[in-house]
Amino acid sequence: MKILRKPGFWLPIMLVLLLGLWPVMTDNAANREVVNSILVSVALASSLNILLGYTGYVSFGHIVFFGFGAYTGFYLMSEQGWPIYAAMIMAGLVPAVLAYLLGSAILRLRGAYFALATIGINEAARAFVKNFDPLGGSVGMQLNFQIYNDYGGAAQALWLTYYLLLGVTIVILIVSYLVRFSKFGLGLMAIRENEDAAEVMGVVAPSAKTRAYVISAFFPGIVGLLFFFKNATILPGDAFRLHLSIETIVMVMLGGAGTVLGPVLGGAGYQRLRGTLLVTPLFRNVQLVVAGVLLLTIILFIPAGVVGWLRYHVRGLRRVLE
């Protein structure tokens, strides 16, 4: 395999792996929680990047797949007694199917109309789930703590979800790299740059876009299930939180849209910054302000993100930072 010799392939994976092993080495649950939230961000940002960064479609409501996957898996586990592994597969497949159905309709929209439609879908989904009693309505669902016994008790179950999340994140990075450096990915980037010209050159844009949408919807659902399984409770407001959607876009932009490494750095950086601001007394009340100013600075002055900026300004890094 040629890609196994590419530094651009290994770098993001090694970074995530090293970070992921730190709590294991220190055997520290507090460290695990820190890394857990970083992995959620990295996984969500990298999934979104396949649509946003490679294809150029700005989904503002991408969190709808996180929410739907989480609800699907959570329901199967708590109401139907499914094991977590099977529930994870469904938590990915159901949003992917949803994305396929939605995609053929909304991916015809360009630019801001697409962004608005995705916001609308997320808000409609949240409002619907709030009213939908089989999924617990507005009070959501709780896991019976007994369920953790199937996985060796609560403490063990938390470690298990952590390992699963780490595994899923690495799989996403591999998929992201493979897409980025495939013929399919070249077609997506052609669409991103100029969809009409891409079609004239033979890129079958409708099906390529839909496939990208489906891939980028598959993983957030699994991440969602792991996230809410760990919390043992799921609420419509948490599962379909529009703000998280937009934060995910921020992470992608921060690190560099359209690169494999960008969402890793962006997700980790944003999450870390948020964590630091929240625990620093000086900034706790104004953490949003600091984050907002930082975001604005990046948008205005470094629109290509950290990785994009480095690739542009340091020639030697181009082979390493993909």
């Binding site: 070249l186 980037m189 740059e193 100029n194 010209a197 891409a198």
Partner: peptide, 21 residues
């Protein structure tokens, strides 16, 4: 002209080769 601006010249032409006849 409609170049795919943020792709390299080679990648632009590869799009033609990959998705053409």
């Amino acid at each position: 002209v409609q170049p795919l601006e943020e792709l390299t010249v080679r990648e632009n032409v590869m799009v033609g080769a990959c998705f053409g006849k």
